[in-house]
Structures are given as structure tokens and as C-alpha cells.
Write a protein that binds this DNA or RNA. Structure first.
Length: 839
RNA sequence: GCGGACGUGGCGGAACGGUAGACGCUGAGGACUUAAAAUCCUCUUCCCGUAACGGGAGUGUGGGUUCGAUUCCCACCGUCCGCACCA
């Protein structure tokens, strides 16, 4: 057999064969050990992009590799199909979000199939279909009944022109993205999940996730943000009514004698109560509410405060009164929504005190003699020795902290406590294209859960997007229902669930998909936890934390025995590309430019183009590559192979024409080897060793997801085979090479396998074993160093003893020359590796 | 500001504390061919040298530990990422 490998024919042929054989359908009843390989499922945005190709190729190689190793593999695919872009498309193109989404799914499914991924399509799911989200509603009600769901007022971004709620990403420079109107903050009753109940568990659980990147664990740890401190009360004087004390949380109780004011969040109940009697304060609070809810906006605001008429009594000195301010930089969501300000040792407090002329008193110093040093320019926030602090003087920060907590607890005015930065998860979205929240609001009975026999609450399809706002709010046929509890008139909840809820349990549904319930516990536990989860690092916090929470919540309800959903996590790098700019600064796409020598020119005009830096592919920089024409030209295997080559998988991969050409060349090279070998007798011992070393190296590389190393090893073996003389060994090496590349280049491998005379498919072939005895050489190369510098290399039999190695090295002509007749001072011998002569 | 990662040829990148630059890309030269494509071979870190199976330098910078450091430690410089009025 001769000629080139033709992917156009082979890709289709083998994809059909795998389909017929149901090769990738996972069997839960299989006696084989099970492996669950999962890539983060895609949002059906329209077309597959190159980042998807890289992500799914990595998972696919692992899935095929494990399968060849004799494991029963679950490798499913589905669609994270709810979300805002579908509604945007609906408004812009007058197409229903469902139609737009389902069409995208169909396109993208075809594109994925074109790449020959070993996916179990029988388990495909889309979160926008009632047979998925209906079960999600059931799980939501489970959490609701367990007290893990509650409703409270919360702020949203409100577009006053479009009369609609905006997500943070829809707020640009403080203005609505569509209307351009300045965004306001509005209070709205919304549903929350009590993720904070699990803050400690989620934090502790990170410790068991050995196969997660440290980076991601650290990000989650910071996000949960545990800090230890003191929670205590300031008694208040001069309050008009009600509250006679305010709760404070501090991580620095040791600085309590440095307090010069108390500051309360504008949304704190005390602030609101005071505002009722103080119009100036009410105005100040209203001022604080302007602008969006995004972090960037809150961050840039100037620190402002409003002095109230009340005073706080220092807990350690009844005669000491502190002024109480309402301040915009204090957050109701963290701690208790109130702080005491220590200007000397906190930069924010320092700025605030400087602005309002409050005392700045040093209570921490590097040593006791520096108690009198003034604080100049900025706050000193480091630890040290307590000074000017009565009974704390001389104690370290740590000791002083413990002492204040001890006194607070003894005196009954406070206690050591823990605060978390993590907040409860707001899941209400004022949008149509999401999972309906299965709640009915009745004037008489309040919020009532939809009875389970009425699930799923199906999203109505007959809606229009010609007006702003959520179309569910004006769909009376759907919205108006009778109360399940009293039978009176009631309204459905028209908010839908955050799409992160959809992605918090899809991996369970993949493992088990009964029609009558979300999942079967035993089936799920056959597969979960996911052995290897692969996706972008952009999901390091939210998605992964929510999925971990959801799993723990179900565990808490007794619906699952596992606590962590993802045993192994891998975050892959992005695919990048060069950028190009025309003279006027506008971005040019790769197909608009051409290379001429070292320069780039605009194809159409011939004008030189500036080569920009290599960046993440993005529409705005116009440096994207559509995978489809590339696959059509080079075939699935070359594209897959390139996705694994060159860069380590956790780092960015630069897309280049040269890279895909190189991959394509290798595919043809393997094909040539498999189709042109002449059978011959005899053993080629050197090739045999090389072969077994390669099997060992590729196996280890794939186990560690080091695909680039597996690729390099495959190249080396191919070169060694090409150089070897015909022999039985060579024929076997070719056959093994085909097995080794099969996970990455499966179509080529099947075609080559058949060409080698095999009658079964390579997907069902076992992974090659290596003989450990062949990994060690009889002859080794000894590095000969003089004073740590390489001076010679000598071939020697393996296992040479130290004395013999030393003698060999000293006999070297070069060593003799460098020693100039002197005896070496010392000789270091590393057996079978090197001899270092210290002259 | 806090936290983290990274820094190696023209480029992407390899190197259990032990021969730095595997493998790929690019480039140069050659073979095959009427020619081209494809393929194959040789060379490709830098400097000195006609060349050597010569010498020297070299893994961001400066120190340290070690017989020996790309690898471990300290400081600095740079790049990237994450987080942040968090009390």
C-alpha cells in the first residue's frame, strides 16, 4: 500500500465504525474498573472555537488512553444551554432564544463529531430542556425544604431607561450597555443559597484535593476568605431609639486602644433608623447608592463619612467616647457591617481620620522605645509590640490579640470569632432564558413550593422580546396560577436560576439519567467523583466552588455519599495568536495579512502591517482562527496532534501555520512507516531498547497529562524506526508506534492498524506494555568533569565500580592534560553517570 | 497593596542537584526530479579560530549552599495571572 494518508476518507470511515460498534458508550454494569473523564461542557455560542478543540482533545486523549488500559470510561458531552447571549440574539435578530440555542447545538455537535472525539453521545444533555431543568427544580426544592434556600432583599443594577435589570458585565463605565443611561442600584427580593453554611467544609475539603492545581486551591481559599478575630459590642450613647449597641468585628483586637472612631455601613439598620430622623444623612446614604454594584466602581469612590449624633462607649474605658460615622467604605456584607477605626495602623482609617481631623494614636511599634514616634504619611499596618495601650503594653501583636479576646469573653462584652469573605449565592436572575424557579407567590400563603407532581415548571415558548424586561413578567397565561396551598389567586416566580446552578450538577446527570428523578444514587456513585476534570482556569472560583457546594449540599441531604465532585482537576492554557495592526491602528485578521521575509503586509493594499504581540484569540483583536477550514484541510488528527504539541498543556499554545504543518507531516510519516515496511527477520537490540523506553515514557507522560512530552517521545521513536534496518523488531516497533499515537491520532491509527493487517479496531486494542529490563543500557556514557566542568565523555560498561570509574576518568588524555601531573584533591563518582575530579 | 506563577537559542519549549538546549518550528546547504510539490540528508546558542574529534562564555541580575545549581536558599529586576475599601 502506498500514497498519502487521506483524512477526508479515513476520518469519516472510522467515525462511522466507532458509532456502529458503540465503542464509546459507557456501561455502568461493566466489571472493569471505571474512569470518569470530563471536560467542562460548552456554552452553545454558535461555533466551536479553537480553545474548545484544545480542551476536548486533551480529555479525549486521556479517555482513549484509559480505555486502552482496560478501564470502563465515561466521557460524555452536553450543553450549558441557558444564558444571556441567547436573549441578546433574540432581541437583535428576532429569533427565539430556544431556536437560536438549539441550532447552535446542532452545528457545534457536528463540529465536535468531525474531530472524532470518543464521546458517549447517548448521554448528551442540554440544560435548556425540561428533561434536565425539571430535575434541577426538584433538587432546588430539596434544598428549599432543607432550609438551604432563602429570600432576601438585595441590590441589582437597574437600567432606568430600558427598565431592566443588568448583569455586572452589562454595565459599561457605569452605564447600561444598550441604553447608555447611568445605572442605578435597586433593592429586589431575590433567592439565595446558603453556601456560607458550608464555608468551613469547603475550605477544609480543599485539603483533600491532591490532584488539583495549588493555584486553584489557593484562589478558592482566598475567595472563602477566613479570618479570625474578635466580635464585640460598643454600647451607644445618644441613640434616638432602638439600638443601644453596635456589633463590631475586628481582626486586630490588639489595636483597640488606638480606636478614634466607629464607622457603620450605609445599609446598616442603625444607619437606616437614623436616616429617618436626619434628612442630611438620608441624602448621604442615597449618594452612596449611586453607580453600579461592580467592584471597580465601589473601589474608586472617595472615602466619605457622615458624622452622626451618637457616640460609642469604649468597652475598656467607660469614660472614653468615640464619634460614630456612617461611612461609604464599610460593607454591610462583610463582618458585622461596622468597624472601629484605628488610623495609625490601617490605611483606610488613616485617610478617613486625616480627612475628618480625628486623632491618630500609635498603639503598635517595632519596639517599646518607639512608643513616642509619630505616624507620618501613611498607616503602619505591620505587627509589632503594643504601646500606649495600658495593660497590653509590651505584648506582641499575637499576645495582645489573645489577651483582648480573653478579657472580652471574661467581661461578657465580646468573643473570639471567625469571619468569612464568602457570601451566600444569589441565584435569582430577572431573565427569561433560564430554569424557572419552582415557587408560587400567594398573597395569603407567601412563597409556596410548586408541588412535585407539577414539575417540571416548563418555560413557555410563546414569548416575545419586543419590549425590555423579562417576558415572563407579562405572560399572564403562564404566570397566573392558583395557590397550591389555599387555592386562591397566585403568581409564579418569574425569576429564573443563575446558569451556574445548571452546571453545578450536570456531571451527576451524565452518570445517571433516569426519567423520574434527577439521578440514581447508586449509579452516580459508580462513576463519581470525576477522575479528571479539564477546563479553563477562568472557572477556578465560581463554577468549581458552586459545584463543590452543590455536591456537599446533596450529601448533607443524604442524597449522595460523596462530598467532593472532582477528584482531579486540570486547567489548560489558552490558544493564542499573533496580532496585526494596520497603519491607522485597526486590527487585521490573519487572512488579511501575508508574510514577506521578515515583514508583514496587508494582502489587499500591499501596505506594511505592524506585527503585534501574541495574545489570546478574541473577536476584538481579530486574531481568531476558525477550526473548521483547518480540519477540512489537514484532517482531524493533524489538528488534534498540533493541539498537544509544542506547549505544555497548562500553558498557552500559540497557533501557527508552521505548527499545524509539522503535525500534518508527522501524521503522514507514521502512515508511510505503517504502509511501506517490508517484513524481515531478526532482532535489532538497540531499537528494542528505544521502543521500550518510549512506551515507558509515553505512558508516564499521558498519566501526567504531559501531552507535549508524549508527542516528543513519539517523534523520537519514529526517527529511530526510520533509521533502523528492516527486522522483526522494526515491524513490531511500527505496530507499537501506531498504538502509542492512537489516543491522539485515532483515525490515522485505525487506518494504519488495518494496513498492518489487523482485523479488530485499535480502539479495542490493549495499551502496550514495556519490559523494565530493557530500560537499562549495558553500556553507559560517563560524563567526566574537572572542577565541575565537563571535559570528556567516556563509554563504560554499566555497573562499573567507583574505583574503576575513577581510574578510567583519570586515564583520560584531557584529564591528564588539565591535571598537569598533579594528583587530584578529591574525586566524586556517581555510578553510571559521571566522575568529577576536583583538582 | 496582597497572593501566586513564570523568566533557558531566531521562536515554542526539554532537562530525578550530575553531559543545558531533547522534540518541534524557522533558516542555510545538499540529494532525488525535466521541473515543482512531496520526501530524505547535513548544519543551525553565542564569541574566538581556516579548521579540529580546539578554546571561552552561557539558563533575567547579584549573592549564597554544594565537588557540581536551569534546578535549592536570599535579594533585586521584568512579565503574566488572581484578589481587594475585607475591618
Amino acid at each position: 500500500m502506498t500514497g498519502r494518508f487521506d483524512p477526508a476518507v479515513a476520518d469519516v470511515r472510522w467515525q462511522a465504525r466507532w458509532d456502529e460498534a458503540r465503542s464509546f458508550v459507557a456501561d455502568t454494569a461493566s466489571p472493569k474498573p471505571k474512569t470518569y473523564v470530563l471536560e467542562m461542557f460548552p456554552y452553545p455560542s454558535g461555533r466551536i472555537h479553537i480553545g474548545h478543540v484544545r480542551n476536548y482533545t486533551m480529555g479525549d486523549v486521556l479517555a482513549r488512553f484509559r480505555r486502552m488500559q482496560g478501564r470502563e470510561v465515561l466521557h460524555p458531552m452536553g450543553w450549558d444551554a441557558f444564558g444571556m447571549p441567547a436573549e441578546n440574539a433574540a432581541m437583535e435578530r428576532k429569533v427565539h432564544p430556544g431556536e437560536w440555542t438549539r441550532r447552535n447545538i446542532s452545528t457545534m455537535r457536528d463540529q465536535l463529531k468531525r474531530l472524532g472525539f470518543a464521546l458517549d453521545w447517548s448521554r448528551e444533555l442540554a440544560t435548556c430542556e425540561p428533561d434536565y431543568y425539571g430535575h434541577e427544580q426538584e433538587l432546588f426544592l430539596d434544598l428549599y425544604e432543607a432550609g438551604l434556600v432563602y429570600r432576601k432583599e438585595s441590590e441589582v443594577n437597574w437600567d432606568p431607561v430600558d427598565c431592566t435589570v443588568l448583569a455586572n458585565e452589562q454595565v459599561i463605565d457605569g452605564k447600561g450597555w444598550r441604553s447608555g443611561a447611568p445605572v442605578e442600584r435597586r433593592q429586589l427580593a431575590q433567592w439565595f443559597l446558603k453556601i456560607t453554611d458550608f464555608a468551613e467544609d469547603l475550605l477544609q475539603g480543599l485539603g483533600e484535593l491532591d490532584n488539583w492545581p495549588d493555584k486553584v486551591k489557593l484562589m478558592q481559599e482566598n475567595w472563602i476568605g477566613k479570618s479570625r478575630g474578635l466580635q464585640f459590642r460598643f454600647r451607644l450613647a445618644g441613640t434616638p431609639s432602638g439600638a443601644d449597641s453596635v456589633e463590631i468585628f475586628t481582626t486586630r483586637p490588639d489595636t483597640i486602644f488606638g480606636a478614634s472612631f466607629v464607622a457603620i455601613a450605609p445599609t446598616h439598620p442603625i444607619a437606616e433608623a437614623l436616616a429617618n430622623r436626619d434628612p442630611a444623612l438620608a441624602e448621604f446614604i442615597a449618594e452612596c447608592r449611586k453607580g453600579g454594584t461592580s467592584a471597580a466602581e465601589i473601589e474608586t469612590a472617595e472615602k466619605l463619612g457622615h458624622r452622626t449624633s451618637i457616640e460609642a462607649i469604649h468597652p475598656l474605658d467607660p469614660n472614653w467616647r468615640l464619634p460614630v460615622y456612617i461611612a461609604n467604605f464599610v460593607l454591610m456584607e462583610y463582618g458585622t457591617g461596622a468597624i472601629f477605626g484605628v488610623p495609625a495602623h490601617d490605611q483606610r482609617d488613616f485617610e478617613f481620620a486625616s480627612k475628618y481631623g480625628l486623632p491618630i494614636k500609635r498603639v503598635v511599634a517595632a519596639s517599646a522605645d518607639e512608643a513616642g514616634q509619630p505616624i507620618v504619611g501613611e498607616a503602619e499596618s505591620m505587627d509589632g509590640i503594643a504601646v500606649n495601650s495600658q495593660f497590653l503594653d509590651g505584648l506582641t501583636t499575637e499576645q495582645a490579640t489573645a489577651e483582648v479576646i480573653r478579657r472580652a469573653e471574661a467581661g461578657g462584652w465580646g468573643a473570639g470569632s471567625t469571619a468569612y469573605r464568602l457570601r451566600d449565592w444569589g441565584v435569582s436572575r430577572q431573565r427569561y432564558w433560564g430554569t424557572p424557579i419552582p415557587i408560587i407567590h400567594c398573597k395569603a400563603c407567601g412563597a409556596v413550593a410548586v408541588p412535585r407532581d407539577q414539575l417540571p415548571v416548563v418555560l413557555p415558548e410563546d414569548v416575545t422580546f419586543d419590549q425590555p424586561g423579562n417576558p415572563l413578567d407579562r405572560h399572564d397565561g403562564w404566570r397566573k396560577v392558583s395557590c397550591p396551598s389555599c387555592g386562591g389567586d397566585a403568581l409564579r416566580e418569574t425569576d429564573t436560576l443563575d446558569t451556574f446552578v445548571d452546571s453545578s450538577w450536570y456531571f451527576m446527570r451524565f452518570a445517571s439519567e433516569p426519567a423520574d428523578k434527577p439521578f440514581d444514587r447508586d449509579e452516580v456513585e459508580q462513576w463519581l467523583p470525576v477522575d479528571q476534570y479539564i477546563g479553563g482556569v477562568e472557572h477556578a472560583i465560581l463554577h468549581l466552588l458552586y459545584a463543590r457546594f452543590w455536591t456537599r449540599a446533596l450529601n448533607h441531604l443524604g442524597r449522595l455519599s460523596i462530598a467532593e465532585p472532582f477528584k482531579g482537576l486540570f486547567t489548560q492554557g489558552m490558544v493564542t495568536h499573533e496580532t496585526y495592526r494596520a497603519g491607522d491602528g485597526s486590527w487585521l485578521s490573519p487572512d488579511e495579512v501575508r508574510r514577506e521575509g521578515d515583514d508583514w503586509i496587508h494582502v489587499e493594499s500591499g501596505i506594511p502591517v505592524t506585527l503585534g504581540r501574541v495574545e489570546k484569540m478574541s473577536k476584538s483583536k481579530r486574531n481568531t482562527i476558525d477550526p473548521e477550514p483547518i480540519i477540512a484541510r489537514y484532517g482531524a488528527d493533524a489538528v488534534r496532534w498540533f493541539m498537544l504539541s509544542d506547549s505544555p498543556p497548562e500553558r498557552d499554545l500559540e497557533w501557527s501555520e508552521g505548527g499545524i504543518e509539522g503535525a500534518s507531516r508527522f501524521v503522514q510519516r507514521v502512515w508511510r512507516l505503517a504502509t511501506t515496511d517490508v517484513s524481515a527477520e531478526g532482532v535489532d537490540e538497540a531499537l528494542e531498547r528505544k521502543l521500550h523506553k518510549t512506551i515507558a515514557a509515553v505512558t508516564e507522560a499521558l498519566d501526567g497529562l504531559q501531552f507535549n512530552k508524549a508527542v516528543a517521545q513519539s517523534y523520537e521513536l519514529a526517527s529511530a524506526i526510520e533509521k533502523a534496518r528492516p527486522s522483526a523488531t522494526r515491524l513490531n516497533a511500527i505496530r507499537t508506534l501506531v498504538l502509542l499515537v492512537a489516543p491522539a491520532a485515532p483515525h490515522l491509527a485505525e487506518e494504519a492498524w488495518a494496513a498492518l493487517g489487523e482485523t479488530t479496531m485499535i480502539v479495542d486494542a490493549p495499551w502496550p506494555e514495556f519490559n523494565p529490563a530493557l530500560l537499562v543500557e549495558d553500556q553507559v556514557t560517563l560524563a567526566i568533569q574537572v572542577n565541575g566542568k565537563l571535559r570528556d565523555t567516556l563509554s563504560a560498561p554499566r555497573g562499573l565500580d567507583r574505583g574503576a570509574a575513577e581510574a578510567l576518568a583519570l586515564a583520560s588524555e584531557k584529564v591528564q592534560r588539565l591535571l598537569e601531573g598533579n594528583a587530584p584533591r578529591k574525586v566524586i563518582v556517581v555510578p553510571d553517570r559521571l566522575v568529577n575530579i576536583v583538582a
